[in-house]
Design a protein around this nucleic acid. Structure first.
Lengths: 145, 145
DNA sequence: CAATCACGATACCTATAAAGTTACATGATT
DNA sequence: AATCATGTAACTTTATAGGTATCGTGATTG
């Protein structure tokens, strides 16, 4: 499979929405991300269920933020898009008969678990508001780069 | 794609080989892992190129260790099986035009990079000899579990 | 109320990479 | 010469994110 880019894409969209007055259509968002509206609706459905955005039909409809960006972390978005699978590597049998296999799996699990905990801590420590702020600071510091 | 279980499988095999006198055939290894010999040959080719095992054809042939288990880390094995892809999540455009997208990608890359560094440090800190030793210790401590 | 707009949902297709399978060639042992 | 075991190539399968087409539903507009 390709890389799962749902988290990356949704963060991108949410930051744009924060700077945008009024709702954005799936069509416009899809153009922005270089994809198509159905993928946007599918992915953003998770954000809606989590209460971070809402969607409206009809004229003037589309997607709008309905959460405090300071209260939503990158980890929250990761979870909202239903992306639990972080690693591309792992093992096959959850409860192997072979004791050697079990020992190997445990050792690997241990290392993977620590790496996952670090990643989750990092994602949980940054809010969308902070990410937007970092972006602004960077723009001000190097406006032409 | 499915999980990449090459590292897990090869560690499993290497530990068995450490306790086994004489070469093991791809056939026997495949039976052990619940797969087939071609997958074994394909995967173990990387270990052979790295100099950790050697293979012999014909009667009495098969695979045998040819490295000091104390000098090969789990990270070495990971690299030998050519498994560089660690994460299932990521982003699409390496050099995006959109500054917001770039900021998002940088923030994610940062967190992923730290998690990857931790994982690599952990894998690099454990040798096959230590893994085998841990296995023995565990067996002695709880022989019937 | 009819046209249009935008989302919701379904069904199906594509791309990718590990893993599985089949088949045959090559070389070593007996 | 027969057998055994690896080496290699080609193809299929599987799992999953992403892409596409289509139609239904509800909201807005005139």
């Amino acid at each position: 499979m390709r890389n799962d880019s749902r988290l990356s894409r949704m963060l991108h969209v949410l930051l744009h929405m924060a700077r945008h007055d009024g709702p954005m259509t799936s069509e416009a968002i899809a153009r922005m991300l270089g994809t198509n509206p159905v993928v946007i609706r599918r992915t953003m459905a998770g954000l809606r269920e989590a209460g971070y955005v809402r969607s409206e039909k009809g004229h003037g409809g589309g997607w709008a933020l309905c959460a405090d960006l300071g209260k939503v972390s990158l980890l929250d978005v990761h979870r909202a898009v239903g992306g639990p699978r972080i690693f591309a590597i792992g093992h096959e049998h959850k409860n192997p008969d072979c004791a050697v296999e079990k020992a190997v799996n445990d050792a690997l699990e241990d290392a993977l678990q620590d790496a996952q905990a670090l990643l989750i801590a990092r994602l949980g420590a940054v809010t969308l508001a902070q990410l937007a702020q970092q972006f602004d600071a960077h723009c001000k510091a190097a406006p032409l780069s």
